[in-house]
Design a protein around this nucleic acid. Structure first.
Length: 835
DNA sequence: ACCTAAGGCGCG
DNA sequence: AAAGCGCGCCTTAGGT
């Protein structure tokens, strides 16, 4: 069967000797044949052995081969090569007669099943050649390129091992009792079951991400139920709603409302329930929230792991993969959709029992408290916040957008006068006709040609070198352009262009797209979005829906401070936009954690650390330091605080101030910072020692940052983990204080019967929409809440630093008026300057 | 038609 | 020898 003289494919022309037509390695009566794309190297073979053994395989039952038969280094194989080699592979399969073929990667999948699309087909069993079953997963090479895939890869292998053991995994991981509510009697029974249940996990399938879209529909809903004494799910129900085959299609809204009246169980569980609750409230449910969100729990227990329901169920419960076959739910047979949704709730319920158990363990007591007292309430509070969204001054937005566009056009026209008629980036058809003039003043290869080849300006920085060592492309970043400023008029224009370009593409156009009929933009806040505990904001979670529609998100945390942009967000007539932000919260917390007494006393005396740095750097007296210069000094202070070295400082000084700082001066500035605050370096050392010992650090509330990289042999990687160990407790604690302010502030305003509501958080600030007549009541409540958080009662923490929240009020976010403490406490509308 | 990485930049 | 931290989004470039 091996043809040592084979020359059919292009690979064979380069390969010699034993590299030509490589045959299977391993037992020739193997039960399992592992197929990769290209022939196995010793190292790869060793690696896959380890993976397989860990997953429960018996290596003596495995053989290893490849879809491409010849080993060649410089030639990339293609589909034709796969076809050419296929007879050899099929011969091998015929002779070995494996029970199961594991196809690693898309090429192996294609060669064994004829199917393509590894992410879609992974974990599914297909009939392969000569009676063998084929199950595919991703290739180890992909895991190398993208380490985040490792967990899923290992879960797939464990699943295949379980299939091989002859167990019926689908039945093992399927609800014991599964019912579909198709008749009125069923509906009645479902409601009765819901009333009797102690706990329920629920999940919807929807037609999209946006519950406010005119065509938004709930396709179905599922529930998994259990009783008070159960420690596993008992019954799972699926209720078809808006689906072409659904008996309830015409009355889906009223049917949904009926079941919504039976949701008073003690325990309500969902995976990212914020999404489902938002939709359900939109379609008539009362304000149901979730008592235990499995995504939040997963994140709280281990912030580094993937948080999707499927990866969690597969890796932690050993569940077989489940997915929906086609893109649109409405085109998928109803039974499949219902079963898919049912499995979601079933596995969410099982994850609940698992995570609840873990959170009840003694060593997780602090995490459990954080979860119960902060994360769950915050996620539930965001349901209404996201439904409210933020108001936008639409005419103003259109006006500013038009200005940005015309500025951009003006600059582009001016820049074009330096572009010659002929240049290497003109794109021509074969006929010679110009297809495109190739001019692109964005960070493109054209711009690199324009700046460095055509204008002959010097290359000041390069991008990352390629794997083969070829140098990176010349950088056209703002810092480089700033350094070239004045060398050519085009450089100045390019610097000006960046801002307008960004405003048009990233901001105004996205805002316009997202505006609803009430001139509001609804953004998504992810409570599990970061490793430190900060929130992230932007696009909706892609996990929920199998729609392919590209939806841009609006990130409320990166709105430019420029009044031109921030000034279009605000409150509609009769309301005010209010921003409360914690003053220098991270520095205060660093002072608290480091026990840095100089810094602590500075806060009591009201000194401005950033201003002193700005004066030092610019050599100007206080009165002459601009707000921009102070902001840059802030970056320097934070840089040193979190471990920045002198070299980076030189770079910052150059790109931010255009200042050429010598190494000695840089060292001096750094030394001055740490001399001023002598307790900081010992604190850095303590954090480094902590992370080296425990591989993790935590905030006072018990939020944990795991840093396994601390054991890396790469010093750079380990040093990064050390700096993260310094930063994370500060950043995490600061964001938890803001999050608690958001939760308690919203709750207290509601308890007072006010209609004011929070719009969202921006790391150390909370924004609110408040009716004019409520300002005098609401402002003092919010300020008092933020400055006197009950963290001793809730988390057993006592802070000995003053915490200060500054207040800005306006009709718009940008340009809002700062109020003094006195004005906040004794507010009167007449205090506000005319807009 | 899709995917990923990297560069760049908005925010804190 | 060299090393601020944390995000999301857009584009380009290069790939299957």
């Amino acid at each position: 069967m091996r043809n040592a003289d084979c020359s059919r494919c292009r690979m064979a022309q380069e390969a010699t000797g034993s590299d030509v037509c490589v045959t299977a390695n391993g037992a020739h009566d193997a039960r399992v044949l592992v197929v990769s794309k290209v022939p196995w190297s010793e190292r790869n073979l060793k690696e896959i052995h380890t993976y397989l053994e860990r997953a429960g395989f018996d290596i003596s039952e495995c053989a290893f081969t490849s879809a491409i038969k010849c080993r060649a280094w410089s030639i990339e194989s293609n589909k034709t090569d796969l076809k050419t080699c296929k007879p050899y592979l099929e011969d091998e399969i015929r002779i070995i007669q494996p029970e199961v073929i594991i196809a690693l990667g898309n090429e192996a999948l294609l060669a064994t099943t004829g199917k393509s699309g590894i992410m879609k087909h992974r974990g599914v069993t297909y009939d392969g050649p000569h009676g063998a079953k084929v199950i595919a997963t991703i290739s180890p090479a992909m895991v190398h390129r993208n380490p985040g895939q490792k967990g899923g890869f290992e879960a797939d292998l464990r699943y295949i091992a379980a299939v091989l053991s002859g167990r019926d995994l689908k039945t093992e991981h399927f609800p014991e009792v599964y019912k579909i509510a198709n008749t009125k009697a069923d509906l009645k029974a479902l409601c009765a079951d819901l009333d009797d249940a102690h706990g329920v996990s629920f999940d919807i399938e929807s037609t999209g991400f946006d519950e406010f879209a005119p065509d938004a529909r709930v396709v179905c809903i599922s529930f998994t139920l259990w009783g008070m004494l159960d420690d596993e799910p008992r019954t799972t129900w699926s209720l078809p709603l808006y689906h072409p085959e659904s008996v309830w299609r015409k009355q889906w809204r009223s049917v949904l409302k009926i079941v919504g009246k039976h949701m008073s169980q003690r325990k309500r569980i969902a995976h990212n329930g914020k999404f489902d609750c938002r939709w359900l409230r939109q379609f008539g449910w009362p304000a149901i929230d979730v008592t235990f969100d499995t995504m939040l729990a997963a994140h709280c227990l281990d912030e580094n792991r993937p948080k999707g329901l499927k990866p969690l169920a597969q890796s932690l419960l050993g569940a077989p993969p489940w997915a929906i076959s086609t893109k649109s739910l409405l085109d998928t047979p109803l039974d499949e959709v219902l079963e898919y949704c049912a499995l979601d709730t079933f596995h969410a319920a099982r994850l609940y029992f698992l995570f609840r158990g873990q959170l009840l363990e003694k060593q997780n007591a602090k995490k459990a408290r954080l979860f119960q007292r902060l994360l769950m309430p915050a996620a539930n509070e965001f349901i209404e916040t996201e439904r409210h969204g933020v108001w936008v001054d639409k005419p103003k937005m259109m006006e500013n957008w038009a200005i940005a566009q015309s500025e951009l056009a003006r600059i582009d026209a001016e820049l074009r006068q330096w572009v010659p008629e002929e240049h290497p980036h003109i794109k021509r058809l074969k006929s010679g006709v110009v297809k495109s003039d190739g001019v692109n003043f964005g960070p493109s290869d054209f711009l690199r040609w324009f700046v460095f080849d055509h204008l002959k300006l010097p290359i000041l920085a390069r991008g990352k070198p390629a794997d083969d060592g070829t140098p990176g492309k010349p950088s056209v970043s703002e810092a480089v352009m700033l350094a070239l400023k004045g060398r050519h008029p085009a450089v100045d224009l390019l610097l000006e262009r960046t801002k307008w370009y960004k405003y048009c593409t990233a901001f105004f156009s996205a805002y316009a797209e997202q505006l609803d009929d009430n001139d509001r933009i609804h953004t998504n806040f992810k409570v599990t979005g970061t490793v430190t505990g900060r929130l992230s904001s932007g696009k909706a979670d892609a996990d929920k829906v199998t729609s392919k529609v590209q939806i841009r998100g609006v990130n409320l945390q990166q709105v430019p401070r420029d009044k031109m942009v921030r000034g279009i967000f605000g409150a509609p007539p009769g309301f005010r936009f209010v921003e409360f932000d914690y003053s220098q919260i991270e520095l205060r917390i660093a002072a608290f954690l480091a026990r840095e007494h100089t810094m602590l006393s500075l806060y009591n005396s009201g000194a401005d650390i950033h201003m002193s740095m700005a004066m030092r750097l610019t050599g100007k007296p206080k009165a002459e330091v601009s707000s921009h210069e102070r902001k840059m000094a802030k970056a320097v202070n934070f840089g040193f605080l979190y471990g920045m070295g002198a070299t980076k400082f030189i770079g910052t000084a150059l790109s931010n101030y255009g200042l050429h700082v010598s190494m000695e001066d840089a060292e001096a500035a750094r030394n001055a910072f740490f001399d001023q605050f002598p307790e900081l370096l010992p604190w850095h050392a303590r954090q480094r020692a902590l992370v080296r010992k425990y591989k993790r650090v935590q905030t006072p509330f018990g939020r944990v940052r795991h840093l396994p990289d601390i054991d890396s042999k790469d010093r750079k990687v380990a040093a990064e983990a050390e700096r993260q160990a310094i930063n994370s407790p500060v950043q995490g604690f600061a964001s938890d204080l803001a999050l608690l302010s958001f939760v308690l502030g919203a709750r207290r305003l509601r308890d007072r019967g006010l209609s004011a509501f929070p719009i969202g958080t921006v790391h150390d600030a909370v924004n609110w929409q408040i009716p004019d007549e409520e300002l005098s009541t609401a402002l003092p409540i919010i300020k008092h809440t933020m400055e006197n958080l009950p963290i001793t009662r809730l988390f057993g923490i006592r802070l000995d630093i003053p915490i200060v929240a500054d207040c800005k009020v306006g009709t718009r976010w940008g340009g809002a008026q700062e109020l003094t403490d006195e004005q906040v406490l004794n507010f009167d509308l007449s205090m506000l300057e005319a807009a």
